[in-house]
């Protein structure tokens, strides 16, 4: 008895009226994957870097994310503590075990309680980095790994992201190039564009359906760490 797999593949070949792909077609497919050529790239984000940063910030605003621009990583503790206070949120953070974030001078705001690790159910706020920001739609690219548990992107009510401005790229394709340069694609790549939302009840948009209600981006200008 042939397997379902073989029967399905045979069915496809029958429908395509050939026994096997022509060697030239198989070659063309292999090359397409190998070279992964870009298709049409919209003009919107093909800009000099400073304008890509501006576009990223304005697109974040459109999707109800908030953003604060900081001169350097040393400004992060004050920005985080002040943001939490302004939202009436507890001064607690679950932080990604990311050396860049751990190197921030948190001692400047000793009232902040910081733990690292994956998210747990009652964590009110998470803090993570991001592999890239995509200007085209204000999209944050998060990659899973020992330094960035995926649950931090999803479970807390408030997600604060520290993003270096030099990690902002124009398009999704630019982001893929960044990731490919780092090695094999990680288990999870989240493209996150604004806080969680739903329109399932009478088509009114509500934030925080399952994931974060608030997405706050701290955009750090200086390359630093």
């Amino acid at each position: 008895m042939t397997s379902a797999r073989d029967q399905i593949l045979a069915g496809i070949r029958r429908s395509l009226r050939r026994d096997a792909p022509a060697p030239s077609d198989a070659q063309a497919c292999a090359e397409r994957i190998e070279r992964h050529p870009r298709n049409l790239i919209p003009a919107r984000a093909q800009l000099p870097h400073p304008e890509q940063v501006e576009l990223f910030v304005s697109m974040l605003g459109e999707v109800a994310a908030t953003v604060q621009r900081l001169p350097g990583l040393e400004a992060v503790p004050d920005a985080v503590a002040d943001y939490l206070a302004s939202q009436n949120l507890p001064a607690e953070l679950r932080m990604a075990p990311d050396p860049d974030l751990e190197g921030i001078p948190w001692e400047r705001r000793p009232t902040l309680t910081i733990t690292t690790g994956r998210a747990e159910d009652r964590d009110p706020t998470s803090l993570t980095g991001a592999a890239a920001g995509v200007a085209e739609t204000g999209t944050l690219v998060m990659t899973s790994g020992a330094e960035h548990p995926t649950t931090l992107n999803l479970m807390p009510d408030t997600h604060i992201v520290v993003l270096r401005a030099d990690r902002i790229v124009g398009t999704y394709e630019d982001a893929w190039d960044v990731l490919r340069a780092r090695g094999p694609v990680p288990r999870t790549v989240n493209f996150i564009t604004g806080p969680s939302r739903t329109g399932d009840i009478e088509q009114t948009i509500q934030l925080g359906a399952h994931g974060p209600r608030r997405l706050h981006v701290l955009l750090v200008e200086q390359a630093g760490a």
Partner: peptide
């Protein structure tokens, strides 16, 4: 679909969690 520029979550999953991953 919804007239959004992009949906809030577009997620690419490749295999199970990797050694060292804290979740997944």
């Amino acid at each position: 679909a919804t007239g959004q520029e992009f949906s809030a979550y577009t997620t690419f999953s490749t295999g199970p969690r990797r050694p060292g991953d804290l979740d997944g």
